[in-house]
């Protein structure tokens, strides 16, 4: 009986270990980015009170990025009311575009949380090759989904996925 218990325990623990290994990538928490007011913050400050959030890399010169953020603007209030999701938009603009980021964000009426990653430290740490590159991060800071490129209509897929994450579904294999 005790042998059985021990074996069961060992089995349970190995499953634990196995699960540990299959763990999802987490958001790097020690990268510095700047707020639109020039304040340096660490990515450990990225959160949505335990709820999932969308992390989107963009640039002022990237047309599909602007289309994505403008399209979501139209439905953002609705999304927030329905799901409580938040969008963190990280600009990878260098010195040429960085000072245009804040006026563009406000002028476009975006209500997102926006940061500037001028040295592209976060972009490199998250293996972003091209923008737009969009991530869904769950309440534990794990990357549960990511996608590059944007076309009108894919914002609907995005919010459906966020809803699934909220319900605790595993979306790592869904498109």
């Amino acid at each position: 009986m005790k042998k059985l218990l021990v074996s069961a325990l060992a089995l349970f623990l190995s499953i634990g270990v196995f699960a540990q290994e299959a763990k999802k990538s987490v958001l790097p928490d020690n990268i510095s980015v700047k707020t639109l007011d020039g304040k340096t913050v660490q990515t450990s400050a990225f959160n949505n009170d335990g709820k999932p959030y969308i992390l989107s890399f963009w640039a002022t010169w990237c047309k599909p990025c602007l289309r994505e953020l403008n399209t979501i603007k139209e439905v953002y209030e609705e999304w927030q009311e329905e799901t409580g999701v938040k969008i963190i938009a990280v600009s990878i603009d260098d010195a040429r575009g960085a000072s245009r980021v804040k006026p563009l964000v406000n002028g476009s009426g975006w209500e997102y949380e926006v940061y500037i990653d001028q040295n592209q430290d976060l972009k490199r740490a998250m293996n972003v090759v091209n923008v737009p590159h969009t991530f869904i991060i769950n309440g534990n800071g794990e990357i549960v989904w990511q996608h590059t490129s944007f076309v009108e209509g894919s914002e609907e897929e995005l919010i459906e996925l966020v809803k699934k994450v909220m319900n605790g579904e595993d979306i790592s294999e869904s498109k």
């Binding site: 021990v6 325990l9 060992a10 270990v17 540990q20 290994e21 990538s25 998250m126 293996n127």
Partner: peptide, 26 residues
């Protein structure tokens, strides 16, 4: 014995966390 095993496995698990890390790329 059981206690020791649990302790040993816990340490191992901890070590797993330390030794685990994550590999990403592009």
């Amino acid at each position: 014995f059981l206690l020791l095993l649990v302790v040993a496995v816990t340490i191992e698990l901890q070590a797993q966390n330390l030794g685990g890390g994550q590999v990403t790329g592009n």
